[in-house]
């Protein structure tokens, strides 16, 4: 397994380099202009100077090489320096990946966005999973019961109704229609400056997370519960389940130990594959509730043609996707003794 992991990791290096180059090319070919969003009162010759100062005048391979050096060498060195308070060679004038719009290091922006994305999107993923698994198990065990039918309906709704609709619906109900001083009132705008220091502020944090988490959790749960149900149904009809019943095991043991554990194998890998999406943020939901996490950062970057930001963020997502694919494969190997990697 270790050899397998190392081999796979080695393979990912050329893959990721290739991906980074493709992203770079795509962004370069895309018709966007970092000065495009500036007011039209700024004259064209000033725009040209701005583009020059951003380094857009250089040929593409030079710009790609610069980005590679900045991202693969300078940024890791900077992290090391920050962790140990050291100053490895050239820390004074080391060029980091700079966002064009904010003129600040992209990695710092990403680090700043991480908490709210993980809090909201990550929590919604966890909540979604926690809701989805019992629903999937019961739906499969009581196939075609009213519970199953209701679960199917809710999943269909969760799947098909977009989050910008459910999100705005929630805001209209819980932020607009309910009076502000009611206990049922929830803030429609996420306060990213809020700091949890005591019980009351923790309570507020829960309140401001409630709506975005619910909206996203519904969506996540819809997907995962379908997976869970299908996987459970596959396993419920297996012979070993009959064996377990013939052994005289309690139904709970049959269901939770025998069927659930086997059914979770594919579901766990699906969950692992979905984790990069958590880091990617939920672009729409973040916009609706003004969570301003990584998804919103990416969108602003795209809108403003902030190419270094988009490049870096997209590449980090690519790394996460490749990494979690590997993790999913390894998890599969760990969970299913029939799978062996050598």
């Amino acid at each position: 397994m270790l050899n397998y992991t190392i081999r796979r990791l080695m393979f990912t290096i050329p893959v990721l380099l290739f991906i980074s180059f493709i992203i770079f090319l795509l962004l370069d070919l895309a018709p966007n202009d970092p000065t495009g969003n500036l007011p039209m009162t700024i004259p064209p010759e000033v725009r040209e100077k701005i583009r020059e100062s951003l380094g857009l005048g250089q040929p593409i391979h030079v710009r790609y090489f610069k980005w590679c050096v900045q991202f693969f060498v300078n940024e890791p060195l900077n992290i090391i320096d920050q962790m140990f308070g050291t100053c490895t060679w050239g820390c004074e004038d080391r060029l980091r990946v700079q966002s064009w719009a904010t003129r600040s290091p992209v990695v710092d922006l990403i680090v700043e966005r991480m908490p709210q994305t993980l809090w909201v999107v990550g929590m919604s993923y966890v909540v979604g999973i926690l809701i989805a698994i019992p629903i999937g198990v019961i739906s499969a065990y009581r196939q075609y019961s009213w519970f199953d039918q209701a679960g199917t309906f809710v999943s269909m709704v969760g799947f098909s109704v977009p989050t910008f609709f459910t999100g705005v619906l929630m805001i209209v109900i819980f932020s607009v229609m309910i009076p502000t001083d009611s206990w049922f009132w929830f803030p429609s705008i996420y306060d990213t400056t809020h700091k949890v220091t005591d019980l009351a502020s923790f309570g507020f944090q829960i309140r401001q997370m409630a709506m975005p988490v619910f909206v996203l959790a519904l969506y996540n749960a819809a997907q995962i519960s379908r997976f869970m149900r299908a996987s459970m149904l596959d396993n419920l009809n297996q012979d070993y389940v009959r064996t377990a019943r013939a052994k005289g095991m309690r139904e709970r043991v049959v269901l939770l130990v025998h069927v659930l554990r086997n059914s979770l194998i594919p579901v766990v890998t699906v969950i692992a594959l979905g984790v990069p999406q958590v880091f990617g943020g939920a672009i729409i939901t973040e916009q609706v509730f003004k969570v301003n996490g990584l998804g919103q950062l990416l969108i602003i970057g795209i809108q403003g043609a902030d190419i270094p930001l988009v490049q870096t963020l997209t590449f980090i997502f690519a790394v996460l996707i490749v990494l979690f694919n590997l993790i999913a494969d390894i998890l599969y190997g760990i969970l299913d003794p029939r799978i062996r990697y050598d």
Partner: peptide
Amino acid sequence: MRPTMQMVFQDPQASLNPR
């Protein structure tokens, strides 16, 4: 009452929990 009566199944692969 299961202990008194048991069964040996046809497909030895499928009837054993793979995990």
